[in-house]
Design a binder for these strands. Sequence first.
DNA 1: AGGAATTTGTGCGTATGTATC
DNA 2: AGATACATACGCACAAATTCC
Lengths: 235, 235
Amino acid sequence: MAKTSALPKFIQLSEMLIREIAAGHLADGARLPPERDMADELGVAVGTLRKALADVEAKGLLDRVQGSGNYVRHRPVVDSVYAFFRLELLNGGGLPTAEVLSVDRLAKPDGFARLGGDAEGHRIIRLRSLDGVLIALEEIWLDGGHRDAVAVADLSDSLYHFYRHELGVVIASVEDRIGVDVMPDWTPEAFHLKAGQTTGYIERISWTAAGAPAEFSRTWYDASRASYISRMGKG
Amino acid sequence: MAKTSALPKFIQLSEMLIREIAAGHLADGARLPPERDMADELGVAVGTLRKALADVEAKGLLDRVQGSGNYVRHRPVVDSVYAFFRLELLNGGGLPTAEVLSVDRLAKPDGFARLGGDAEGHRIIRLRSLDGVLIALEEIWLDGGHRDAVAVADLSDSLYHFYRHELGVVIASVEDRIGVDVMPDWTPEAFHLKAGQTTGYIERISWTAAGAPAEFSRTWYDASRASYISRMGKG
DNA sequence: AGGAATTTGTGCGTATGTATC
DNA sequence: AGATACATACGCACAAATTCC
């Protein structure tokens, strides 16, 4: 007797709200109706709705202001081009640019296969530079379900911009794991690092606001020219 | 007219609980009384207590299990002891510990000399482990002005706790730069890594809330056992 | 400037569902 | 199966912050 107990009401509500916001049905900055009105309309108690709203706020899609209202925030991620780019020259800074080498639709690798829903993914290979100096090689896997085909021309310097505006996928959080690795043997000729040479290594998984994995990437960077920067606290 | 508006009751409760757990008055794994009993005893409504308990859980000091009880968890330790520790085992997590090898008062190295006011600094050498496995070697430089002498016995697992409670120095922000380096030749015998071997490398500068540099450190970590983790956004 | 209306935040009490023991 | 304990949900009253007149 599988008692198919439904999800808690406040979870259903928060997921519904997240879908509405992500789909663009609620504009950025829009103010929701007062909680009591909203609760009446939805046929739930105010406390239940408040729990759902707190959930959406925790996911960064809503600003709740006492005495004022609940405001949709459609930019959990700064739409800035380099919001999540963490490599800098050794003396700090540097203007980041990207050059896409290839885009292919392939079966997803083991590390990413378990995550998304689709068995295939788009593999994007890019070179990254700082102030015109080649710094890193990126291998990015994007879940297949979003689009049948992705062309090199589709991609701008900011993949996150592409994800959001072309695929409707909003990246809300990322996790980077930084270690040491050797340059893979498919290093392109253009790259100044030699295959087999020791480099800094970054593995990234990113998620949508709804918590679904969206992207997996591996980056090899020349630690003699750039370093990965993590700032906590101010700044 | 200092309007001494008290903090919300559920905040007071959660802070009280956190203090109790941190002080060791509640043993690790101990089970709290049922929520209704506890609420009666504290003279608050169950809902209010539940909000406080959710707070403590969010800080990682409590396990709440439906149908069973609320269990104290000492793991992440309070006072954000490991708030700035970013190394994790390859499969995630691991309980961090530290072993101080030496503390010396020396002239500060070039990289740190320009920063603080004092010409001398305390150099602390530590080994870091995760779940008992040696992971990293740390060289930490603390500005000399704070105290004439620092003894090994003064230092707990958390240097930030020491800074704050013994020196009155509150670290408000840090910047980590992660790259690749070779293990220095003064590697202690106890360490499993051999001098000259390639490791992950972290340079950290930390500042007080006032913006004054407080600490400079270099960490060499075994990238085959641990990785540096950086999480952005929610999660 | 000031006070009333609006809106979210806090706190209480209770009834019912669900997981654990 | 029964008892225990946490989770969800409802509704209400008042406090605090904001907004509007």
